[in-house]
Amino acid sequence: MAYTPQYYPGNTSVGANRRKHMSGNLEKLRDIPEADVVAIMGHRAPGADYPSTHPPLKEMGEPDCPIRQLVEPTPGAAAGDRVRYSQFTDSMYFAPSIPYWRSYWAAINCRGADPGTLSGRQIIEARERDIEAYTKKLMDSEMTDVARCSMRGCTVHGHSLRLEENGMMFDMLARTELGADGNVYYVKNQVGIPLDKKINVGKPMSEEELKKRTTIFRYDNISYGGKVGARKFDEALEALHHMWELRTKWGFRPE
């Protein structure tokens, strides 16, 4: 029988969304052109060659190593690309993904990636052409809502602040704006350098849609314990209590 990984417990919609994010089995909601993703990331001009830090692996003559024979290099590693990053900030107002789930997604589904989790933002580092592909996947999928998530390489805060009047997450560098047509536009790249043209990333989700897709447990949507007033807590909270108990009493050794 084939093994099916069990990523996260619980019967709530948040539990189900967390499983979806971790498994990488995500719905594609939009298709942002690759050149636009590259422009927002701001590491190289769209269409330009990839600068490299070492010659392609095939030309380097690698040592005889069983691990190297076993593990196929990613396209970026094979070509000798630089290591670059993309970083996202997610609003605590029902953003679809949150830093830990972005990291789980990256660690489970992306080869050669180094995810870093911080309180209100999440960074993924990888070889340049790999991180571009991963970032496009992130921006196209249901892990991103264009109003409540935003690519921010620096001056990232906005996660725990109130929203702007139009429902956008506050951005100190004004990288995104809500157009009169209801679409969200990136006007600057992730570090605040103005783009040559505005990049349309589509319409934001409605409040109901966000509450349906979020991975954030909140008292005013889905509580960690599941249905309020139920006889039993949701399995997610039970599992958390169990892990806490094991770790506190004996040190967590999942074996």
Binding site: C154, L161, M172, L173, A174, K188, V191, G192, I193
Partner: peptide, 21 residues
């Protein structure tokens, strides 16, 4: 409320004006 800087304060774009503010 949070500050609205006139220029980018940090990173590769440091010093660039923020016209929106």
């Amino acid at each position: 409320g949070p500050n609205l800087p006139r220029t980018v304060t940090y990173g590769p774009g440091k010093g660039l004006p923020i016209e929106e503010h």
